[in-house]
Write a protein that binds this DNA or RNA. Structure first.
Lengths: 345, 345
DNA sequence: CACGGATTTTTACATGCGTTAAACTTAACG
DNA sequence: CGTTAAGTTTAACGCATGTAAAAATCCGTG
């Protein structure tokens, strides 16, 4: 209700009759001030409008209480789920998260990392773009502050802590499942936007060889725009279905968004992918995108444990930034994927 | 390359033989420094590693170059598209965007707004939670800095600039379309997470009356968790289809995510919604969620002009913060929705 | 070689708060 | 009533930069 506005702690001190250092201590930790003073301050704050200056506090504290997070795409529910997990975990630990999205642009990604450096964030969690990432900035980040990679793991940053999925296990699991219940699957690749694409492809090949089948990969480079996975899956399969190819195959898609495009292609050609029909078309994905249960048919996939990845990334970061003596041992945590068997395969 | 690290501008000045004020001016605007100096500075910066301190610069400049953005959900592609549009527009104008997600929690939302105040952001763009938002903080925001609301418009903030969709027009348009090509639609409501839900409902009712039909609303309060729209649509219709209700109706869903759940319910009951079949089930949505073209059947809907909303919000904000004399006239821009006729209705 | 304009350096103060040391109050305790 | 410990105030400096005014330097001209 139109409280008088106070801009500096100095003024506030004068207004409520407490010294500035006491106020400073109060804002950092109220228990470090006597009860009588706390009462007076709380009372005073109710009568005036004051918020400590964000920059001034952060500039002077030895710790900023900030965690920087970079993700490559925003229009992907996988990354937003990841972000959500990170934000809740960080919030619970009392940290403020600064999020930046690189929008698939290495220049923006670099700028974001530099911003984090100039903000003296306490730590950074990054899902890198991949090959195109500016490795120098990340090397600098890693040298200067606690740093954890997630989701994707550039070759140039092999010595950095990493939290992600075990694509060898997850892709292996679904490949094996598909082989068990039907013909050995073809792999519908996705645009090579990061290393996961290649890892899944490799894991598929390995598992197929292990099971004595010949791997077959399609769609590795038809559609080149990043982040248009559904359109990619649709384009590749629409083309092949039109030629009568793959219409009775099992198709393992590199991720669920590609698979959603694949489902669409099937529907356009009057095909009904499903586990029931012996010998018919099957389509499976990877990730357990939130919409998988709602597609028609619902999509069989392997779930990435997104929540665990986010949570673990934060945990590891906190561990690093609490330990003054930087523990030299690198931590790599690969989460297992969990089969989600639904209707499509 | 292990460049020597330099922490302050003072040290940098000494290292490359230029005075600190000159460096300061250089970092703010290189054209304000003579060419010879620029050359020397650029050359020097290549040999040492230095980034100006984010907080110190922001604390002292009269303008921080920051724009604060708050969105209510992250796991919704509508909002991520909006965010993307805002970020690109802001970046183009040379501003840095600080994003905060309220995660459907008014307390977090309030904290985010207060953070913006304490950061002295140049302006703020907010998609509010709705009824639960803390109106006091937003009133303070509006009083202290250029402020623009988008997407949803709380009653308590009627005098604030607003950029959003004209739900009366958009919902009217699709209602009319549905009436034209088939039986008058039933409205499948969504959980009342914000005012748009109600606006669309009202717009539907109005248009139905205008066309001489009796409005019918279902699912207004069955499923209460926010942000689980697909599950809501599925639950409501699964229930009704099981009782043989609505199986030959036109169903207008409050948004596309609800509609995706509705499509799933139809599929579970062996129903195939579509425009072709005279007299059969029809399902339509609202928003043009990015996955609409890929559902089975592809979803007929009305597109919200997300990009334009984001762009316009930024434009308006820039306009306000460039004009010292705060123009008193409130700006409200409601974008028209565009019919996207696909297979489902 | 002197001169005027442009640029840079010097010098000094400002921002808002963290932090420290010493002086001071206060309340409790013997 | 003197002593002591806990908490507070005073005073002063530090952080990394912005900014402004005055002094110094540079450049090309006439």
């Amino acid at each position: 209700m139109a409280k008088p506005k106070i801009h500096t702690m100095e003024e506030l001190a004068e207004a409520i009759g407490v010294s500035r250092p006491t106020l400073s201590r109060y804002f950092q930790d109220p228990t470090k001030v006597s009860k009588s003073s706390v009462a007076r301050i709380v009372d005073g704050l109710e009568r005036v409008e004051y918020t400590p200056n964000f920059f001034a506090t952060r500039m002077n504290r030895k710790t900023t209480g900030l965690i920087g997070v970079i993700i490559p795409y925003l229009n992907d529910l996988f990354f937003t789920l990841l972000l959500e997990a990170i934000e809740t975990a960080a919030l619970r630990a009392g940290y403020t998260v600064i999020t930046q999205c690189s929008h698939a642009d290495p220049a923006i990604e670099k700028r974001a990392a530099e911003t984090f450096l100039s903000m003296n964030v306490d730590g950074a969690i990054v899902a890198p773009l991949g090959d195109n990432s500016d490795m120098d900035v990340y090397a600098r980040l890693n040298a200067r502050l606690p740093f954890v990679l997630m989701d994707s793991r550039p070759k140039a940053l092999r010595d950095v802590d990493f939290i992600g999925s075990d694509h060898r296990q997850s892709t292996g699991a679904i490949t094996e499942y598909l082989c068990r219940v039907g013909p050995p699957p073809v792999f519908l690749a996705m645009p090579r936007v990061n290393f996961n694409a290649l890892e899944r492809e490799a894991a598929y090949i390995e598992k197929m060889h292990e099971l004595g089948h010949e791997p077959q990969i399609v769609g590795a480079r038809l559609y080149h725009e990043h982040d248009h996975f559904e359109a990619h899956g649709l384009a590749v399969l629409d083309d092949m279905f039109a030629r009568g190819q793959l219409i009775e195959s099992s198709i393992l898609c590199a991720n669920d968004r590609v698979a959603i495009g694949a489902l669409r292609a099937a529907s356009q050609h009057g095909l009904e992918p499903g586990a029931q029909r012996k010998g018919g078309l099957r389509i499976a994905g990877h990730d357990d995108y939130p919409l998988c249960p709602f597609t028609t048919p619902s999509l069989t996939t392997v779930a990435q444990n997104v929540t665990a990845i986010g949570q673990t990334a934060v945990d590891r970061l906190l561990e690093k930034l609490r330990a003054e003596n930087i523990s030299e041992n690198q931590v790599i945590r690969l989460m297992d994927g969990i089969l989600k068997i639904r209707e499509s395969a």
